[in-house]
Design a protein around this nucleic acid. Structure first.
Lengths: 219, 219
DNA sequence: GTGAAATAAATTGTTGACAATATTCCGTGG
DNA sequence: CCACGGAATATTGTCAACAATTTATTTCAC
């Protein structure tokens, strides 16, 4: 599915860089993406930036308006709620589809990623935290055996990054994430599918709650 | 969500035209999309085509390879199976999320679309069949109240169009589709949620079966 | 001083040409 | 006859300049 990741490399590079920018908060929701400005920043041409923005739009991270350019997507509290609801459904389903026992190499990979993530948290290396966290979940849910479900889950995770990292930079929170990753791996190793599904859903709740509290109650 | 539909209209026009091309079989799986060729065909520039292709890639309808361009996506029998599995999960879930009773205007709209679809089937107007069928399902699943779930369902439906219309051109089949749409509306009107969910899942089976039979058994 | 129209600046949208890469075709040597 | 290499072709990737549109600023009337 993602064999196209490496292709069209220059544009793809910018896309990923901009994703990181959005995730770590260098770009805020509603912030306008000015093409020439970005072209200078990434030392490239407007054309490349432009194409990258098209892809970000397709991924649901920015919105474009005719003759007005693109700006970082901002979701309303209601939309955030809906987003997390979908993620719960999808991730729970994926967890329940995993065939046990899982093979050892896959598990070892997961454990390695988890450790790298934990280390990054301790050294407060935001870039690595984001990258390893993303990889962890990708690897985890790829175990469900359905590439489409796995892909959708990734897409939705990307979108919730739009709202997540503005709220989740405290070390306490990040350490809790690490703990929950461990619990998930425990359930995986034990082959306890119901518990795994529950943990995956629970894993989504802190960031959901934090965001909604910050933004105030619904309606 | 889809407020961006009307923006960057020229590109979007081409995207939809190409989607139709793929769906009605003017473009075959694995067929190469040559930019200049398409530019002449749609009487526009390569740049517009190029951008349209980027969006088709993001939608999962074509695959791009560096310096080699794009070609219509071809799914293996295994992938088709996975695709339909996801669709079952999503559509069943959406059906179960619909809040009853649904409001009358929405239902009337659905009934109108259903009728238009039925008429198109009788007159064998492929273009209209495709359009109304798509609209029917979009309208139906938008009732679930979750725009993200609704969007994902549409995305997956688009992808299965890649394999569907090569198998489903017989009038008998299309009439069966019409019947099933009526049954779905009946369940909606009756507020029978369980039956609705079942019908939605069943509605996916004929095309799934037809494809897999044609391609032979799995593995 | 306020509001509206006109002007200026900034930004996006479009185009054509050129460069880099891949594919095809043909001829040569084995 | 087949395999290999190299030129010719086709196709994609990149760039810079220009046009159209939106946004900000200034000016003028009241």
């Amino acid at each position: 599915m993602d064999q196209r990741k490496r292709s069209i490399s220059k544009v793809q590079e910018i896309v990923q860089a901009l994703e990181v920018d959005i995730v770590i908060g260098r770009l805020y929701p509603r912030e306008h993406l000015v093409e020439e400005q970005l072209a200078r920043r990434f030392d490239t041409t407007r054309h490349v930036i432009r194409q990258a923005i098209v892809e970000l739009d397709a991924a649901g991270l920015v919105v474009r308006e005719a003759n007005k350019g693109a700006s970082v997507c901002e979701y309303s509290p209601d939309e955030v709620n809906q987003l997390y609801t979908v993620r719960e459904i999808l991730e729970r389903q994926a967890a329940l589809m995993i065939q046990f026992p899982i093979d050892q190499p896959a598990f070892n990979t997961l454990e390695k990623i988890r450790a790298a993530h934990a280390a990054a948290v301790e050294s407060s290396d935001m870039m690595t935290i984001v990258a390893t966290n993303k990889t962890f979940h990708q690897q985890l849910f790829s175990l469900c055996g359905n590439q489409f479900l796995s892909e959708i889950i990734n897409d939705m995770a990307k979108r919730s990054n739009l709202v997540r990292f503005t709220t989740s930079t405290s070390k306490d929170y990040l350490r809790q994430v690490v703990v929950e990753h461990s619990q998930i791996l425990d359930a995986l190793a034990a082959g306890d599918q119901q518990r795994l599904a529950l943990l995956c859903v629970e894993h989504l709740q802190p960031s959901r709650r934090m965001y909604l509290e910050r933004k105030g109650p619904l309606t």
